[in-house]
Amino acid sequence: MLRQFKPAIYIFIVLTLGAGVIYPAIGYVIGQTIFKNQANGSIAYMNKTPVGSYLLGQSFSGNIWFQPRPSAVGYEGNASGASNLALTNPKLIQNIEQLANDYRRQNGLPKTTSVPADAVTASGSGLDADISVANAELQAPRVAKARSISLARVQSMIDRATSTSPSFIFGTKVVNVVTLNLELKEMKLQ
């Protein structure tokens, strides 16, 4: 048994150099030369100032913004995670009902309006940048009114922020809230 420790230590060092230093270094060089934008977090810029990542949701409050999905970590970038509430947990059902009522109130919708499920459930990463198309369209009149712009204009922004790529396989059509709200903000500057 003891005889095995010498090769164990040496081979451990060699493999650590290979898998822990050389391998990530190659990945780093490829990332920073060929895929610089992606490797650095797909950063969104406004006037050359970084304002977030297209992949990470942010929190937006107020009627002038499209609201992202509920988050268990409050869109803190250096945390991530889900609520882990089970479908059998009464607290989850309570939360959903509360969020549905809030959603209807904020968007001026009648009590009978059906609310898209993504608007009332916390995402898995806590950083979901996407909302459903139905969710965006229900929020559009409120945003248009708060910004005094036409609904058609907001609708065209939603169309531009809707990605078609996830339907490639296994996916659904989604609207990226960061893209959408960034366009709203840029419009204000013009």
Binding site: A100, N101, P116, A117, A134, T172
Partner: peptide
């Protein structure tokens, strides 16, 4: 509460 599904499946996307 009246909740509608996000895609074709009637799933609550909690988590």
């Amino acid at each position: 509460s009246n909740i509608s599904s996000v895609a074709t499946a009637k799933v609550l996307p909690e988590g």
